[in-house]
């Protein structure tokens, strides 16, 4: 409700997020290195990697059809398109329309589906295994995500992403604090599972049997791999941005303070992910559904709190 409709600012934020997204992985890796007592890769390492990869040529196996080559660019475009609907800081997205939250979720879903199809296209059994795991976990994560959307829609009485994220914050009167905390916690879990972070998938392991995301992209090299890394960072950025907007206090001094606070909070969540990855071990695959169903229960409890109190 408090968004100024200022398209210039929003586009500035959009470009900033396109530029800054790979930085999140740098922050996460720095935090993990700090916990392990190492110096770790540079903050801008992913930029260097992407630059290096983009100058190479892609190699594709002869068993694949065109899906493998097409998937990275399509899934990158779908993710960027989804990001067009995320409000930037305190500014409404100029493209917002009623129901765009569903469009947002399924654009990200489309991006995932393309990755899965490409993984099956390789003909490698490891990639297929990763694809199967990805599909399995994403079904459960989507239930949690939509339960959160239902909660927000009840609060905001709208299903437009820019409206959904505006009226809620920890200090909003009339909404119980535990409900907001439950939803924010569950959304953090969704971030971890959607972006293949640690308790669900280990981004660092290169043992094919234990990977999900890494297993799916084993067959990529060169510019396609760079695109996949960039897509992953954009996805992480947009999820962190939504969580930030959930918790951002609405009455900040001015647009500039709001923007800085927004960017800072996104970085803080990256640090949070790094801390989680440093202190937790990966879950057994059988335990993952328990955690996801548990967070679904948490969100539904929040919805019940909202409906009956």
């Amino acid at each position: 409700m408090m968004y100024n409709v200022n398209h210039g600012f929003w586009w500035a934020m959009f470009l900033a997020s396109l530029l800054l997204a790979p930085l999140l992985f740098g922050i996460i890796n720095k935090v993990k290195a700090f916990f392990a007592g190492r110096r770790g890769p540079r903050l801008l390492q992913l930029y260097y990697d992407m630059f290096k990869l983009s100058r190479k040529a892609g190699i594709f196996s002869r068993t694949t059809s065109g899906v493998l080559q097409l998937a990275p660019i399509m899934s990158l475009l779908a993710t960027i398109m989804a990001m067009l609907f995320v409000p930037g800081g305190l500014f409404r997205s100029p493209l917002a329309f009623g129901g765009d939250v569903i469009f947002f979720c399924y654009l990200l879903g489309l991006s995932r589906m393309l990755t899965i199809l490409a993984a099956m296209d390789t003909g490698s059994s490891f990639a297929g295994m990763g694809a199967s795991r990805e599909a399995h976990f994403s079904v459960l994560a989507e239930a949690v995500l939509f339960a959160i959307v239902i909660f927000l829609a009840i609060v905001a009485r709208s299903i437009c992403l820019s409206d959904l994220l505006s009226p809620l914050s920890l200090v909003t009167p009339g909404i119980s604090v535990p409900a907001v905390l439950l939803v924010a916690g569950a959304f953090f879990i969704v971030i971890l599972v959607e972006n293949c972070r640690l308790p669900f998938d280990d981004p660092e392991t290169h043992l094919e049997l234990t990977m999900i995301h890494e297993a799916m992209i084993l067959d990529y090299a060169g510019p396609e791999l760079a695109m996949i890394h960039y897509t992953a960072s954009l996805k992480l950025w947009s999820f962190c941005a939504v969580l930030t907007l959930l918790l951002l206090p609405q009455r900040v001094a001015g647009p500039l303070t709001g923007m800085l606070l927004y960017l800072a909070l996104i970085m803080v969540f990256a640090v949070g992910i790094g801390v989680v990855e440093s202190i937790m071990a990966r879950y057994r695959f059988l335990k993952v559904p328990h955690l996801l169903v548990g967070s679904l229960a948490a969100v539904l409890t929040a919805v019940l709190l909202l409906l009956f109190f």
Partner: peptide, 8 residues
């Protein structure tokens, strides 16, 4: 909200 948090 503290009692609520405890109960939840």
């Amino acid at each position: 909200s503290l009692p609520e948090i405890i109960l939840i």
